[in-house]
Amino acid sequence: MISIISDLEAIAKLESGELEMQMEKFNLYNLVEDVFDLQEVRAKNRKVVLRYGKSMDKNTLVNADKQRIFQVLSNLVVNAIHYGFEGGHVTVSFYDMDKVILVQVRDTGVGISQSELPRIFERFYRVDKSRSREQGGTGLGLAIVKHIIEAHGQTINVNSSPGKGTSFTFTLEKAK
């Protein structure tokens, strides 16, 4: 109950513009490393391998709210672990797109049907209602992720194929 209230408060503040982003220059690779370290046990329990994309630049610097981007990455990685197939993997990749860095979090999991995709960023929306109790969570994670990315003036997208996996991509301002 406390986590639902906390998540709802965060969404309300993001929507109203009350929650200011604390912009700073930081190393995105190191932040992903921190997320992986925190989710290592969860991934092992599900027999999911956490890995970096092949073209990862360990010196990728972005200008963003580090704490909020940590929250975004954590949420996407946890979802990828939960909905990934046992023995599968979660891959985080970065792509230099001139003025922005494109971040991709991809899993080899159950995927999401095309009819469900337009609604996944809605509050409390769950694709697989039967897994709600088993997986836990508030149903607010992806709504918060979207609001955080939009509060940075950036975009988030999702592509998915049932039975093959899901890929979330978002952009962040490249640090100069």
Results as ranks from 00 to 15, higher is better:
M1Y: 15
I2N: 14
I2P: 03
I4P: 02
I4G: 03
I5N: 09
S6Q: 15
A10I: 06
I11S: 04
S16W: 10
E18M: 09
M21F: 07
M21L: 05
Q22S: 10
Q22N: 15
M23L: 14
E24C: 11
E24S: 15
F26N: 01
F26H: 03
F26W: 03
F26L: 02
N27D: 12
L28A: 14
N30L: 15
N30F: 06
V32P: 05
D34I: 02
D34S: 09
V35S: 08
E40C: 02
V41G: 01
N45H: 08
N45Y: 06
R46Q: 06
R51M: 14
G53W: 09
S55I: 07
M56E: 11
K58G: 04
N59R: 06
N63G: 09
A64Y: 06
D65S: 11
K66D: 08
Q67V: 13
I69Y: 07
Q71Y: 11
S74R: 00
V78L: 10
N79M: 00
H82Y: 14
H82V: 11
Y83F: 13
E86A: 15
E86Y: 12
E86V: 09
G88S: 11
H89R: 07
H89N: 10
T91P: 02
F94W: 04
F94M: 10
D96R: 01
M97W: 04
D98M: 08
V103Y: 02
Q104F: 08
D107G: 09
V110H: 03
G111P: 01
S113V: 05
F121E: 00
R123G: 03
R123V: 04
F124E: 07
R126K: 02
D128A: 04
G136C: 14
T138F: 04
G141Y: 06
V145S: 05
K146M: 12
T155D: 14
N159R: 04
S160M: 04
T166D: 00
S167F: 01
F168V: 01
A175L: 04
